[in-house]
Design a protein around this nucleic acid. Sequence first.
DNA 1: TCTCATAACTGAATGATTTTCAAGATAGAG
DNA 2: CTCTATCTTGAAAATCATTCAGTTATGAGA
Lengths: 221, 221
Amino acid sequence: MDSAGNEGRVARRQRRNREALLKAGHEVISEKGIDAATMMEIAERADVASGTIYNYFKSKDELAIAVLELVMEQLARRIEDVTNTFADPAQVYAFGIRTVLETATGDMRWRQLLHRSEVIADAIFQRMGPFAIRDVQNATSAGRFSTPDPDLTWRMSCFAIVGVSLAITKDELPASVIDETVVRLLCMAGMSETDSRELASRPRPSLPPEAAPNWSKAKAR
Amino acid sequence: MDSAGNEGRVARRQRRNREALLKAGHEVISEKGIDAATMMEIAERADVASGTIYNYFKSKDELAIAVLELVMEQLARRIEDVTNTFADPAQVYAFGIRTVLETATGDMRWRQLLHRSEVIADAIFQRMGPFAIRDVQNATSAGRFSTPDPDLTWRMSCFAIVGVSLAITKDELPASVIDETVVRLLCMAGMSETDSRELASRPRPSLPPEAAPNWSKAKAR
DNA sequence: TCTCATAACTGAATGATTTTCAAGATAGAG
DNA sequence: CTCTATCTTGAAAATCATTCAGTTATGAGA
């Protein structure tokens, strides 16, 4: 193989296969949920043999995790594109958690993902963490939040968000609790009830439309 | 069959079977986790045929849910026994969430249960909810908390507790974060940072030892 | 006490899936 | 052009949850 930057046919095929598997995995998992998705169907849609999946992912769970992490990264990037003009870091954080809640409950493709809570919560924690934790730190420096452990606060928030989203999709709670959920999470980050409520009720810009997903960003596992 | 209060042999055997299944289910699930537990092993330990389980529980998941809900109810009762002398309802709540965190991370039998977060979080929510929500309401009336939706706050807390417990058992966080977790959950319930920290640091009585579990309290599903 | 209908129990068979692996391609270095 | 290392294939193995036809036990009525 060309030891210079040039990519051989094998490497090209591998990249194609990995991307096709992530795309197919996303489709099938979004339609049926992680548990009901079968490796056979994913393989067929990616146009590879079922055994080939295991050259790319150690198990079904790892494939699912890779898919969810990509989805999260893409949402994080869309949020970042809107919020990088906000002056108040607390507002960036509030916009982020609200957007995750609204996407998780509103986008049909997300609903199925919630049923394996620890997987989706972990993906949110890991992939949106760098942004979210930075925002919490900035907001704490600015005196808006007061939490000594932004990592812990963010981890708790991820699970709480998934829990509320799950309840909304199961119609155990109305979608209108999203407002109060944001308020409570701001309180958890150390903001006063009054400030939280004011911040949560500010007008918000809308999220830009979803770009065509780029499946090649997946990390090897 | 005796139509008076007297119980026939059939009813007696059914009660024995149900209890044996719950006990066996608890053992096996605690040792291996919900997913790795097999119906065969549970049936063997309960000394019934595998098919018999389905006379008592519609599916493996329902059996697991019944087991977890019983475990939660028993813990709730032990907490209640200690806290019913507390004067401050906020302190009752704080003691409850701390106890769940410590039990979930300290008791080896709990560690396996955390891996199906939505199941355990739901069991906590359902079975400890009556107590917890009452405490939050009392604390709000007493001016210690301020949350307009105790149900939502409790639901968020359950998922956050499971998330933190999971991270501790995976050694992603030290057990010492339990203190700060309690503080953050009190903030979420609407208490100020200062008050939360004071409340979380108060000395606590110890939980009474675990009584022999009573497997007959299970509800039919 | 005997008989019979009903309900519960049994465990082998079913069916659905993930994962493995031996055999067959394929690329690209020499 | 050849050879080897690597990837792909798809059939077979392995694992379970769940079903169900056949067996057994119970207790009401005669």
